[in-house]
Design a protein around this nucleic acid. Structure first.
Length: 460
DNA sequence: TCTGGGGTCCTAGGACCC
DNA sequence: TCTGGGGTCCTAGGACCC
């Protein structure tokens, strides 16, 4: 069977850096507390506030390198993976998401001092891509490797955070170099180029170590007789494409280090969404209680949409059954999506969410709820229907605006809907969370404790 | 897994239109 | 009607990433 050949001479060849912050949350905590991020045994542990006392429910959001080594845990793991009683040398601290976000902003500003907006792509809270091809001269360095060292030093001096850097001809190579080599190297850097593919990518030991291959895809590949990246690269492109669709084709290309994306291209994701998911503190099977939670989530999503100046044209509701509960249809969850006229209004979102809930729910035992607004647009005009008087629409909009303002100024808890006070309501408890975890003290409270200079003290 | 939370992308089948 | 074909939109389901 014929196969595909890649000609590296024709592929994009840039100097791309993929930089991540070593154990970001854990390191930030160490820095804030004046401890060495590499030597301190520290984990950031999140407890749902309703079960502080239950060790088993603790989730470790981040572990310092020393903690990883000492207890054989990964970056993200569970409290029960730690020895118990907890060793005295181990520092366990609650998350302070607000401070991590500030630290992230500071680090991004440092990256921006090395490249312009166009050549900086934020991948996640602790990972960024930089295209430094055109700035090597400007910084008087001979190689991207040297520039990477400069940036690492700069970030460390300004923040105390260690960074790891993967370097490559394209974003994929840089990312693979980061994940599979830089993290293990003493200098926290690794450079993978096209000519290195055979002795780098193909030597990655496990399929699941490869970006884009999880447990399920690894199994599918195994079923095709492919057990390593090397075998993947030496399989047949057309066969893979036939058996695994575009994913197969993409994996094949990736195994040869091929990635034709550029950071500069304004990449438009096909879909955008804003959603929330929460595991409930206990099983819920009362319709009214679930309705309260769903309404709260619709409220929260509406607030976020309005803050970002967005409107949703779709809404998805998911109700996940309690562990072990399976209904007649053999399902483990219920899910429904609906389209709607572009809106960011609380009333509209709640109405649609409730409609989906009514159509789905038949008394099952629920443990988790997810609500996601998708197909987001920036449409300015208001779609009018023939039956709702314009005054009513304007009125609802004003109410939303006022609620937003009050909450922004005085905090969420100062203005909650009556239903949230009922049995089962979650909004009040969740209002202090940032990104689903404890936000830590507000800036104002930090100032009270440490004075006006608290940000400087924290190197933020 | 003895249930964290927030995202994006791909597939497949049905509805509907020409 | 023992019966065409192609395109697009919609929704449910699933996989992966940080």
């Amino acid at each position: 069977m014929e196969n595909i050949q890649f000609d590296y001479a024709l592929e994009p060849s840039r100097d791309i850096l993929c930089i991540d912050c070593k154990s970001f949350y854990a390191s930030t905590e160490c820095v804030l507390r004046g401890w060495d991020p590499l030597r301190t045994e520290l984990v950031v542990m999140s407890y749902p506030s309703h079960r502080m006392d239950q060790r088993a429910s603790g989730l470790i959001l981040a572990s310092s390198p020393a903690a990883k080594r000492a207890y054989g845990i990964g970056n993200v793991s569970r409290a029960r993976d730690l020895p118990f009683p907890y060793p005295p040398s181990l520092k366990i601290v609650p998350p302070r998401m607000r401070l991590y976000m500030k630290m992230n902003q500071k680090i991004n500003r440092i990256y921006k001092s090395y490249c312009d907006e166009e050549n900086h792509h934020v991948y996640s809270v602790d990972e960024s891509f930089l295209d430094v091809t055109n700035v090597l001269k400007l910084f008087q360095v001979d190689s991207p490797f040297e520039l990477a060292r400069m940036i690492q030093r700069d970030v460390f001096c300004q923040t105390g955070i260690y960074t790891t850097v993967g370097i490559g001809d394209n974003p994929l190579l840089a990312k693979l170099a980061l994940d599979n080599a830089a993290k293990k190297n003493a200098n926290m850097k690794a450079e993978w180029r096209y000519q290195d593919v055979a002795r780098t990518i193909w030597k990655i030991p496990e399929l699941t170590d490869f970006w884009g291959i999880g447990k399920k895809q690894a199994k599918r590949l195994n079923n095709l007789g492919i057990r390593s990246i090397d075998q993947l690269a030496h399989s047949n492109y057309f066969y893979l494409k036939e058996r695994m669709g575009v994913i197969g084709a993409q994996l094949y290309a990736h195994s040869w280090g091929i990635d034709r994306s550029f950071l500069g291209e304004t990449y438009e994701p096909k879909s955008h969404s804003i959603g929330h998911q929460q595991i409930l503190p206990r099983d819920y099977d009362k319709k009214e209680e679930l309705a309260v939670v769903i309404k709260e989530m619709a409220d929260q999503i509406g607030t976020r949409l309005r803050k970002d100046g967005l409107k949703a044209e779709g809404l998805t509701l998911q109700l996940i059954f309690s562990k072990g509960y399976i209904d007649e249809g053999d399902r483990t969850y219920l899910k429904r999506h609906m389209t709607l006229e572009a809106t960011a209004q609380r009333k509209d979102l709640m109405k649609v969410a409730m409609k989906m809930f009514d159509s789905l729910y038949r008394g099952q035992v629920i443990r988790a709820v997810a609500l996601t607004a998708d197909r987001l647009t920036r449409k300015e005009y208001q779609q009018l229907d023939l039956f709702t008087p314009i005054e009513l629409i304007e009125q609802a909009k004003k109410v939303d605006e006022i609620v937003d303002r009050i909450r922004q100024r005085y905090g969420f808890k100062k203005l909650v809907y009556a239903h949230s006070l009922k049995e089962g309501g979650r909004a009040i408890e969740r209002s202090s969370l940032v990104g689903g975890h404890a936000g830590g003290l507000s800036g104002l409270e930090e100032e009270k404790n440490f004075g006006k200079n608290w940000e400087k003290l924290y190197r933020l």
